[in-house]
Every structure is written in C-alpha cells, then in structure tokens.
Amino acid sequence: MRTITDRIRHAISFEVIGILIATPLGAFVFQLHAGDSAVIVVGSATVAMLWNYIYNLIFDHALNRLAGTTLKSGAIRILHAVLFELGLLLMLMPLIALYLGISLWQALVMDLAFALFYMGYALVFNWAYDRVFPLPEWEAKRG
C-alpha cells in the first residue's frame, strides 16, 4: 500500500499538471473568459484533490481485500478511472452551474467534457506514476 506522503505527492502532482493543461483547454473549448476557466478548473481541482485522496484510499483497500494486491490490471485501471470521475461529476455539476449561472444541463455537458478529459488524463497519469513510483509488493506478483 502507498504511504500517506506518497498519496499526497500523487494527488498534488496530478492536480498541478491537470490545471496547467485544462485551464487553457477549457477556456478555448467553452469560450470562457480565462479567469472563469481558471476558477472552475482550480475549484474543481481542489475538490478533486480531496476526492482523489479519499477515493484512492478506499479503492486500494477494497482492491487489496478482494484481490489480495493493489496491482491494477488494464481493466481495473479503467474501472478505477470511471468510478472516480462519476463521483466527481456528482459533486462538481451543481457548483459549476451555480458559479457560471447556467442550467444544470449546461453544467452537465461542461462537466462531462472535463470528466472525459480527466478520465483519459487519469489513466495515463496513474499508469506513468505507478511506473515511476512502483511498490515493492508488485515485483513479487510479476515475478
């Protein structure tokens, strides 16, 4: 299992890189003022960072209990990303609607677009993170 320090490093690095990519992308795609895009992305990143820590802790404990390891296959990684984004979507949609003064439907469309981006980003980031910072227990399972 990952340490608290490792989980914090993971969450912060994930969000910082995501903010740097998503802010200009969101402004361009949704024709938002850069400031509004930044508020949405940074606010969402703050909620997501807290959710990331809680979700990954719960997911790893569940995976370890069910499979006896935290090593994730490709299918488990996809499930991990989808469930994370669904939980985040439910939290962020009303906040986006309120901030921008738009309907929940419009916020849903915007949130889904961000969720699709972050789902792909999460898959790639987490895979890379696990390669850069592997856990010793995984070597025993692979060998």
Rank of each mutant, 00 (worst) to 15 (best):
I54M: 06
I19C: 05
Y55I: 02
F114K: 03
R65W: 14
A38E: 03
E137A: 13
G74N: 14
L50C: 14
A34F: 00
L123V: 11
S103D: 05
A38G: 07
G68T: 11
F125D: 11
R77Y: 08
L86I: 15
M110F: 15
Q31F: 02
I78E: 05
S103W: 09
L116H: 10
A122R: 00
I102M: 06
L89H: 05
A113W: 14
G101L: 09
P136N: 14
A128T: 13
I8W: 14
A62L: 12
L25V: 10
N56P: 11
G68V: 11
A128L: 15
M110E: 07
F59N: 07
V47F: 10
I54R: 00
P136W: 06
D130K: 01
V29C: 11
A75D: 11
L104N: 06
A62D: 04
A107P: 00
A81S: 07
A128Y: 11
L83S: 15
N126K: 10
M91N: 07
L135P: 04
I4Q: 14
F114T: 04
A81F: 00
A11G: 03
H61V: 15
L100N: 07
P94E: 06
L92N: 00
V29K: 02
Q106G: 01
W105Q: 11
A122F: 09
I19S: 01
D6S: 13
V132K: 13
I19G: 01
A122W: 03
M91W: 02
L66D: 08
L98R: 04
A48K: 00
I17W: 04
I4P: 09
D130W: 11
M93V: 12
A27M: 02
Y121L: 06
M91Y: 03
R131S: 06
L63A: 10
R9Y: 07
L20I: 13
D60N: 12
L25I: 10
W138G: 03
I102K: 01
A38M: 08
L71Y: 12
A122G: 06
A97Y: 03
A75S: 14
A34T: 02
L90K: 04
V41L: 06
L90W: 08
I12H: 03
V16G: 05
S13T: 14
D36Q: 05
L57Y: 10
L112K: 09
L123K: 07
Y129P: 02
F125C: 13
Q106A: 09
L89E: 08
L104T: 09
